[in-house]
Simulated assay, not measured.
Amino acid sequence: MTPLFRRNGPAPQDRLVTLIRKPGCHLCDDAQAIVEKVCAELGVSWEQKDITQDSQLHDQYWEQIPVVLVDGEQHTFWRVNEERLRKALA
């Protein structure tokens, strides 16, 4: 069902979620499952970046991973709340 109006801001298909993670991180795996689910349901694009492959991301986020960015802005870190992410993207 298409809403008759939407809040100011980009449409879901114009949004981008970035998951910043590292290999072997169980919190990162949990975060990815939530990001994949919410983004698939809302039609939002997402990507993942590995802090072990990017020294700038490593320096900025190594104590906070997993980190979720919404349109380039930090949304959350460590644990991803499905409803909070869904609300941020709606």
Rank of each mutant, 00 (worst) to 15 (best):
Q48T: 05
L42W: 02
V35I: 02
C39Q: 02
D54R: 01
T2S: 14
L42P: 02
D71R: 07
R86P: 11
V67C: 09
F77V: 00
F5V: 05
L89S: 13
P66Q: 11
N81C: 15
A11I: 06
E47N: 07
A40D: 07
T18F: 01
Q56T: 05
H26R: 06
Q60I: 11
F5E: 07
N8E: 14
H26S: 08
E63C: 06
Q48W: 06
F5K: 02
V38R: 05
D50M: 09
H26P: 09
Q13A: 13
Q64Y: 06
S45N: 12
D29A: 10
A31F: 01
L89E: 13
V68P: 07
I65W: 03
P66G: 10
L85F: 15
R79L: 11
H26Y: 07
K49V: 05
R79Y: 09
T18K: 05
A33Y: 00
Q56N: 09
V70E: 14
K49H: 10
G43A: 02
L85R: 10
E83I: 08
P10W: 12
E63R: 11
E82R: 12
S45V: 04
E83V: 05
D50T: 04
V38K: 06
W78Y: 12
H26V: 05
L27Q: 06
H26E: 03
Q56G: 03
E73P: 02
V35N: 01
E82D: 11
R21G: 00
S45R: 12
G9M: 10
T76N: 09
W62E: 08
Q48V: 03
E41I: 00
E47K: 13
R15S: 11
Q64W: 06
Q56P: 00
V67M: 07
A90C: 11
A90T: 14
K37C: 07
V68K: 08
E63D: 12
T18P: 00
V44D: 00
A33P: 00
H58I: 00
T76W: 04
R7E: 10
R6Y: 13
T76L: 01
W62S: 13
P23C: 06
L85Y: 14
V67E: 09
Q48R: 13
Q13S: 12
L85T: 14
V67K: 01
P23A: 14
R86K: 14
I65T: 04
T2N: 09
R6N: 10
G72H: 12
V70D: 10
Q53N: 11
G72I: 09
F5A: 08
R84V: 12
P10A: 14
L27G: 01
V70P: 08
P23D: 12
P12Q: 04
W62A: 12
W78E: 13
V35M: 01
L89A: 15
W46I: 00
V80N: 11
T2P: 01
Q13M: 09
K37G: 08
L19E: 03
G43D: 03
V38P: 06
F77W: 14
H26K: 03
W78P: 05
W62F: 13
E73K: 15
T52D: 15
R21A: 07
K49R: 15
L27E: 01
D30I: 00
E41Q: 03
L42V: 02
N8F: 12
T18C: 01
I34C: 03
